[in-house]
Design a protein around this nucleic acid. Structure first.
Lengths: 157, 157
DNA sequence: ATACCGTTCATGCTTTCGGGTGATTTTTGC
DNA sequence: GCAAAAATCACCCGAAAGCATGAACGGTAT
């Protein structure tokens, strides 16, 4: 709108009005009193000072602030907690069967052989057999070594 | 020195000189030609414009540029791969001693009690004692459970 | 029909682990 | 200096794990 645009030239208008007023005052004084010629310098000096001030004021108002962008790096730690992916390649290479992997996981969870047997509805002997096979394929001597190696090789989470 | 100080008011001096010169020119023109009265406004207008410009120039020179700082946060994702940090809080809470933690770590590495004893230059009985104390404090029944819990609680890597 | 693999199960035996009990020595904190 | 905690060690014993050997069954490929 016309009013909106007006706001944009606010300072320019202010400047123009100041000038007009000053000229009017000067004209008025000229007609009211006989101005002595050597007083002209005084008026001009006053005008110069006033409009210099006005110019300064304008400059400060119109000057665009210099925008400086500061990038702050914020460190975000990613915990790959739920992002485990079985190393299928290694699994295939070692030749662990699905059942064997299942038993291995339960071993790593801290279950005893008897507890694993109960969990999988098989006999203790079956679990012992699977354990032996697992140790063989992983080339380890005991369950703790099997756990350590399986985690290292990303066979279990 | 006097010359050094002078540099500081460089612009002020320039402004003063401009004013003096202008007055001189005006005076000179006044004496050379009979100035028509209605032309006074023109001169004053010119003066106003010139000194406004001068003011603007002064402001830009003297005024410090306004700097507006915008802070942008950039997220940098860091995977703490080799950055295991022992959960000291949990350690203190559970009351595990330095030796006990040491033994726990070796258990998790897959060493047998006898092997740990040899590693730490102590007897098998000592390791068995430490194990029992560890299981007690972690409230677990066997080494595999101790390993699982210690890793979960970030007591060991 | 045969061979192979995975799964399950059994038995006997050995080794390792884990609990209980007790003691001594060293270190730490007040 | 003293009390408490930590570290170390011993012995006894049952539980659990691990090894060796063997067998049966079902599914799949040749």
């Amino acid at each position: 709108m016309a009013f909106r645009q007006l706001g944009k030239y606010k300072h320019t208008i202010g400047y123009g009005i100041s000038l007009a007023i000053l000229l009017f005052i000067l004209k008025w004084l000229q007609f009211r009193f006989v101005i002595i010629d050597h007083a002209l310098e005084i008026y001009i000096g006053a005008i110069a000072v006033i409009f210099t001030a006005l110019g300064i004021w304008l400059a400060l108002k119109l000057a665009r602030p210099k925008i400086e962008t500061v990038v702050v790096e914020k460190e975000v730690y990613i915990t790959p907690a739920n992002d485990f992916a079985t190393n299928d390649e290694e699994l295939a290479r070692l030749g662990l069967s699905k059942r064997e992997l299942e038993v291995l996981q339960l071993i790593a969870e801290g279950l005893s052989n008897q507890e694993i047997a109960a969990r999988l509805y098989v006999s203790l002997n079956t679990i012992k057999t699977h354990s032996s096979r697992i140790f063989e394929k992983l080339d380890v001597k005991r369950r703790t070594q099997a756990i350590e190696k399986a985690k290292r090789l990303n066979l279990i989470p």
